[in-house]
Simulated scan of single mutants.
Amino acid sequence: MARFRTYNGTNGLFCIYMTRCIRRLCLYSLLLPVFSTVIAQDSTRSQSKLVIFPAMTRSIETSWAFGGAASYTFRVSAKDTLSRTSSIQMGVLYSLRKQLVSSIRGTQYLRNENWIFNEQISFSSFPDKFWGMGKNTADNSVEDYSFKQMYIYLHLMKKIAPRLFAGLLYEYQRVWNISYKPGGLFDQQQVPGRQNYHVSGLGLSLTYDSRNHAFSPDKGFFAQTYFNHFSPLTGSQYPYTNLVVDIRKYVPAGKDAVFAAQAWLFGNIGKSVPLRSQAAFGGDNTMRGYYQGRFRDLQQFVIQGEYRRHIYKRFGIVAFAGMGNVAHEIGELNFSNLKYSFGGGMRYALNASEKLNLRIDYGIGKGNNSGFYFQLAEAF
């Protein structure tokens, strides 16, 4: 599973931004703020702020989705001037494809950022698509299925050196009301997790982060690796271990331009990894142009790059390309039947100082795979 899994891996649905960002976006009839409350504020910065607003997104998986969201930003201690602003975000979206996604997530910075705590709780009721397992599935082999999912993710990180954090994480996932075609691909391939199940696991992480901005860095390096072990000892119905490596580099590429690159490895160790914990290829963050889950297996790698350039006032353009693959075993991750994607898009800066952008992308993949995305914040 990728981080922020509202439907097995999405991190663009509930990006949160400040009141002035919403007002600017409202001018373009994209979002309309309905309620904004400043709880406490001084002359230099807001100590705490609550913002409630309607929201709208689009992806290949959901088509257009509409709903509402809220953001509460605050400082854990007024005396802590070194830590970044903490936040808690909530949101509910319902798509034109009758998909419901609700989420609460946040990040809290504690004790001069010596501690960082991330949390996410989400619920999804989601009609989805399945093409079968493996890297060689055909476009016309698609079957519809649906499920309900509850997901909990807790991640506590401790600074152990400048820009370096060690972490402890916990994940819980319950999947039920799974509906699929009897005798179809799920039964033919005996896919684990096609019946109701839950998993629970504990893991460790190591993170290095020298990026100069959280939303859209123009320089710096980010590297994170973690493993999470799901076991009967932690209450999991399926025993397996999830491994993830995420490496990103941001390099200035001339005036008002940056080149961003990412290498991402997602792996599972175990003979029986349930459906919603498997690698799901595609989405609005990796391999844009492919439906998320177009190719599905236990292992996955993605390498992608993006050229981002500011062109006028709050507007910018991007061009991106990537390649990747899935496999059943780590050793089988190779360039056989390699998947690729490329595309471009526009950016509008909702908050120039925080570099938070509205993202409009069109991605083209191999075969009949392509799609349009309307999201907040960069893909990586």
Score class of each variant (00 low, 15 high):
residue 235 G to K: 06
residue 271 K to T: 13
residue 355 K to F: 01
residue 316 G to D: 05
residue 67 G to E: 06
residue 5 R to M: 09
residue 348 Y to W: 14
residue 134 G to W: 02
residue 3 R to D: 03
residue 263 A to E: 04
residue 74 F to C: 01
residue 281 F to V: 13
residue 367 G to E: 09
residue 67 G to S: 02
residue 83 S to I: 06
residue 83 S to R: 09
residue 333 L to T: 03
residue 276 R to C: 12
residue 193 G to Y: 10
residue 78 A to T: 15
residue 28 Y to S: 06
residue 202 L to T: 06
residue 303 I to T: 01
residue 370 S to K: 14
residue 294 R to G: 06
residue 86 S to I: 06
residue 108 Q to F: 02
residue 165 F to A: 03
residue 96 L to S: 09
residue 194 R to F: 13
residue 6 T to P: 05
residue 310 H to Y: 04
residue 122 S to Q: 06
residue 216 S to P: 06
residue 209 D to P: 07
residue 305 G to Q: 03
residue 57 T to W: 00
residue 86 S to Q: 00
residue 379 A to S: 15
residue 184 G to V: 15
residue 66 F to Y: 15
residue 86 S to L: 08
residue 262 Q to F: 06
residue 70 A to S: 14
residue 279 A to F: 01
residue 88 I to H: 01
residue 160 I to N: 10
residue 194 R to Y: 10
residue 225 T to K: 00
residue 148 K to E: 01
residue 80 D to H: 11
residue 156 L to F: 11
residue 153 Y to T: 09
residue 214 A to M: 04
residue 164 L to K: 13
residue 272 S to K: 15
residue 327 A to T: 12
residue 73 T to I: 02
residue 59 S to L: 09
residue 77 S to D: 15
residue 85 T to F: 00
residue 347 R to Y: 09
residue 378 E to Y: 07
residue 100 L to A: 07
residue 3 R to A: 12
residue 157 M to R: 10
residue 362 Y to K: 12
residue 273 V to K: 06
residue 132 G to Y: 08
residue 173 Q to A: 12
residue 362 Y to S: 11
residue 320 F to I: 06
residue 231 S to H: 14
residue 225 T to G: 15
residue 117 F to E: 03
residue 8 N to W: 04
residue 333 L to S: 04
residue 261 A to F: 15
residue 168 L to Y: 05
residue 94 Y to R: 10
residue 250 Y to R: 11
residue 47 Q to M: 07
residue 348 Y to G: 08
residue 42 D to F: 03
residue 146 S to M: 05
residue 309 R to N: 03
residue 144 D to I: 08
residue 81 T to G: 08
residue 251 V to W: 14
residue 14 F to E: 00
residue 279 A to N: 00
residue 366 K to F: 11
residue 55 A to L: 03
residue 323 M to H: 05
residue 155 H to R: 10
residue 46 S to P: 10
residue 124 S to Q: 05
residue 288 R to H: 13
residue 129 K to L: 13
residue 116 I to F: 03
residue 127 P to A: 12
residue 108 Q to E: 02
residue 169 L to T: 01
residue 30 L to N: 01
residue 379 A to W: 02
residue 342 F to W: 12
residue 161 A to S: 14
residue 316 G to R: 00
residue 65 A to Q: 02
residue 180 Y to H: 04
residue 257 A to I: 02
residue 269 I to C: 08
residue 378 E to D: 15
residue 73 T to L: 06
residue 369 N to Y: 04
residue 37 T to Y: 15
residue 346 M to L: 15
residue 128 D to F: 08
residue 112 N to M: 11
residue 300 Q to Y: 07
residue 143 E to S: 00
residue 130 F to M: 02
residue 218 D to V: 14
residue 167 G to S: 03
residue 234 T to E: 07
residue 120 Q to P: 00
residue 286 T to E: 10
residue 240 Y to A: 11
residue 263 A to Q: 00
residue 174 R to G: 09
residue 34 V to I: 13
residue 291 Y to P: 02
residue 139 D to A: 14
residue 24 R to D: 04
residue 16 I to D: 00
residue 254 G to C: 10
residue 175 V to M: 11
residue 311 I to S: 08
residue 289 G to M: 00
residue 108 Q to I: 12
residue 316 G to S: 01
residue 301 F to A: 13
residue 2 A to S: 09
residue 376 L to Y: 00
residue 165 F to D: 06
residue 253 A to W: 14
residue 182 P to E: 03
